[in-house]
Computed example of a mutant assay.
Amino acid sequence: MSFWIAWINVLVYLGVKNFASSRKVLTYAALILLLFLAPFVSGIKVLNQKTDAKQIDITLVQGNIPQDVKWDYKLLDYNFKVFDDLTKKVPEKVDLILWPETAAPCYLRAEPKYFSLIKSLSDSLQTPLVLGTNDYSVLGQGSYLYYNSAFYFDPYQNNFAVYNKIHLVPFSEWVPYPKILGWLYRIKFGLSDYTPGKDYVLFENPKGKFPALICFEAVFPDLVRKFVLKGADFLVNITNDGWWGKTAGPFQHAQINVFRAIENRISIARCANTGVSMFVDPYGRITQRTKIYVQDVLTGKIPLRNELTFYTRYGDWFAKGVSLLSVLILAYSLFRKVVGDR
């Protein structure tokens, strides 16, 4: 996309620069027209293709819990009650229920009361459920590692599955170069000290496999394609965008998912605490969405992946190739200048 935009701007600049030459202006105009027509024609062809892909029914539960309420331990009962009540309003049987990032704002593994509540809810509805929570592992002698995690409860299994967020937000979920910047922890502005996860976990639903990308992990194309290469049939993105406030942030963050869907030709179900929760089809079209800062329950169907795109298979080779070519051209220009100055 950026390559396409850059070239259109270059051609416009060349057209203006050579405005006195009608032949050159027409040439650049023709190239600009071609750059618009090529993706337009290709897009029409792709969007008109018929598919017989299998589908999965998913419910997104948007609790709209304010930040000051979410992290008040005394209000933990209220947090769970909101999501429990909304989930029980789901009118029909679905294949998967999603709660957002930190829907369980505690170490759920260490909270038997709330852990049992979630497990009982999943069992009673006979529906797998994904939610965000904190987690930890014991290193020994009172030492722990902490994670921003997603738990997958499956009524068909006795155990639950866990994914620990791999790509943490710097200066929010962790501090890079702690030996140099560790003093930042002494400043009380909400820093966490999470450990990045290492495993590319795919949760196994009876209808298909999927990762639970947490928050801004959906921003990173290479991270997402690795999950798809491991066999993901659809993508899930859970997030808490409540700290954005009523700004452009929640909408921009949500739109990033459109690019990941197109790159990998895969559907996405996105569940956000305060919105935007939405479904995105494999062609990047948002089929359903919620408003921000409202409680809502959204149920929809998304098709399962039935192909591997060129990008999924090979990644950012084009971007790397263009970058290398740019470096070579710059080096050659500098070399000619140095030789010419002699």
Rank of each mutant, 00 (worst) to 15 (best):
A254H: 04
I32A: 03
A248D: 15
I187T: 06
E263S: 05
S267N: 03
G275M: 12
A232R: 05
F220L: 04
L125M: 15
N9R: 02
F171G: 06
V94Q: 09
G315W: 09
R265G: 01
T87L: 15
G284T: 12
R305P: 00
L121I: 08
G300M: 01
R313G: 04
G315M: 01
T290F: 05
V322G: 04
D241M: 12
E217S: 09
A38L: 13
E217I: 07
S277P: 07
V162P: 00
F318K: 05
P128R: 11
G340T: 06
L47T: 05
V175R: 02
L131V: 10
Y146L: 14
V25P: 07
I44R: 13
S326M: 03
A150H: 07
L181S: 07
G245N: 03
I118K: 13
S333D: 07
A261V: 00
F251H: 14
Y314C: 12
G249M: 09
Q288I: 00
D95K: 07
K45T: 07
K88A: 08
F83K: 11
I187N: 00
D281C: 04
L235H: 02
N164G: 03
V162Q: 02
S149I: 11
D123N: 14
S120Y: 00
P303L: 04
K81G: 07
V46Q: 06
K209I: 05
P250Y: 02
S172V: 15
N134E: 11
Q288F: 10
T309I: 13
L98R: 00
L75H: 10
T51G: 09
P100K: 06
A261N: 09
P66R: 14
F279T: 14
K246Q: 12
Y136V: 12
Q252T: 09
S21F: 02
D296R: 01
P250N: 13
